[in-house]
Amino acid sequence: MTTEATARTVPYKEKKPFDYDPYLRQGKLPHIWCAGCGHGIVLKSLLRAIDALGWKNDDISMVSGIGCSSRTPGYVDFNTMHTLHGRAFAFATGVKFANPKLNVIVTTGDGDALAIGGNHFIHAARRNMDMTILVYNNYIYGMTSGQGSPTMPEGAVSTTSRFGSIEPPFDTCELAKTAGATFVARGTAFHAQELEKTLYEALKHKGTSVVDILDSCPTYYGRFNKHKNVSEMMKSIEKDGTISVAQAAKLPPEKTEGKIVRGILHRAERLEYCDGYQNLLDRVQNK
């Protein structure tokens, strides 16, 4: 056996401390995320999943828009692009189309993906281009200090809904599935190891993968909505507020009411966009 790093064939069984350094730009650390923010946990789960797949840094392109989640590409030593608010999917589409060999990952937030970028989001899902979309979902715009986003639950308080939101939220996963994404899953920052496994499957899937990650914001959402501290907030929203697909299947409907389901929610096989384009070229060029 050589000493060279090889892909782990049996992931999630590692006992020794995981070495994140090869994936990070040390000069860009420490990150800007607030104490108690789950974005760092999501990043760690993502890096472990990438490590398990054995992907090389240079074979990955990470694209983001604007917001707290969109700072992620700044910290990772991949081919990264930090673009415009809501437009990451459009940029990522260009990257993948120009170089289909790249593993394209989009890190986005609920405001970035579902409000200003909602149109790009549904069309990315519809095309089924091979990319993995991580929606860091904290129900508010954190970077601009806590305005309500399209995933904010009804009744929740934000700087733009002082007396509670009257708008029904989007369900990121239902939206992605309906729009045509072929892999749809949900995780939380609380369930870090489960998230790693979910992301592993999402990255591996060929086609548009969307992972909605509940990742509450203690600085704004938590404070506005009377969560006493970070652990209480994560416990009530991410732990007690959710249930796994497997658990949900065992319980009667009344026991799962009001709970958000975690895990892989939808998986389908459909022609990937770049492959479809190649087929078209072959057909019209009579190959």
């Binding site: 608010h85 200003i116 970077m143 601009t144 200090s145 305005q147 309500g148 399209p150 700087t159 002082r162």
Partner: peptide, 29 residues
């Protein structure tokens, strides 16, 4: 919202919430 203009609307939304204006404030996408 967008930095650095965000607090204009943030403070204005408080005036709306406090009933000091009768403006229709629409927080769009």
């Amino acid at each position: 919202p967008i930095t650095p203009s965000t607090t204009v609307i943030e403070e204005f939304s408080s005036y709306v919430a406090d009933g000091r204006v009768d403006t229709g404030l629409i927080t769009v996408e």
